[in-house]
Design a protein around this nucleic acid. Structure first.
Lengths: 116, 116
DNA sequence: TCCACATTTCCAGAATAGTCGAAATGAAGG
DNA sequence: CCTTCATTTCGACTATTCTGGAAATGTGGA
């Protein structure tokens, strides 16, 4: 359970979630740290802190390539996380929706929009 | 995205995750606060703090029943959360596993199963 | 070797989160 | 009303997280 909590905590921060999403978009090839920093306009030290956090949680891996460090998402562990949530937190109800096709940016939580 | 981060943050804490799981187990009828406190051996003030946190994040609802307050999981929003993760954080790969049938307690994150 | 550059570590300050006893709130029932 | 009991709010403290400048580390190229 500690692993689950760590993974959730890693994603539970705006900057880190952005970093992670960027790397998901980038796919298995990943991105060098500097490019992430550029894209998200983050100071090196700050980015490094968050990358380390995500990596500790098992959601990211970094490999050295020349003088760059290339980070890429660990889809296995994200898979496991979603699996855990589905099995333990959804009470058996249908959890992952049909997911017809990746529709670019999705909009946040529930459609309990109109009131409730 | 703020909503997603809030929901993740709410679950990213051992005590709160336990509370939430307990309520998932309890199903839509939910549980009175006191019973949760008993079950998890938490001081009232501490539990109240965490329940409020989860409720603010939209993962819980509380309804008054006599002098009890009955809390229950909001499956819609958890659904939406899992949906978000599946669509935005899994790179299109299969994310929610087959989920053959709820197998009681599942065991944490990947063991880096030989590949995939 | 020496320099340029990418990234990380170190540090310290500001902000936020978690804990829980004690007091306050609010409902039920005499 | 007055008491009981479930729950929440208050308050105070400790611990952790986030941030980013400056220095350190490490790599490739001239």
């Amino acid at each position: 359970m500690t692993q689950i909590v760590d993974a959730l905590a890693a994603l539970a921060q705006e900057t880190r979630l952005k970093v992670y999403r960027l790397l998901v978009e980038a796919g298995p090839e990943g991105l060098p740290a500097g490019e992430i920093a550029d894209e998200l306009e983050l100071p090196g030290a700050t980015l490094s802190f968050h990358l380390a956090h995500l990596a500790r949680a098992g959601l990211l891996r970094g490999r050295q390539k020349g003088r760059y460090v290339i980070y890429s998402a660990d889809f296995q562990n994200m898979n496991a996380l979603v699996g855990y949530l589905t099995e333990n937190c959804c009470g058996g109800r249908a959890c992952a929706p049909a997911n017809p096709r990746k529709g670019k940016d999705h909009e946040t939580l529930s459609r309990t929009r109109r009131r409730a």
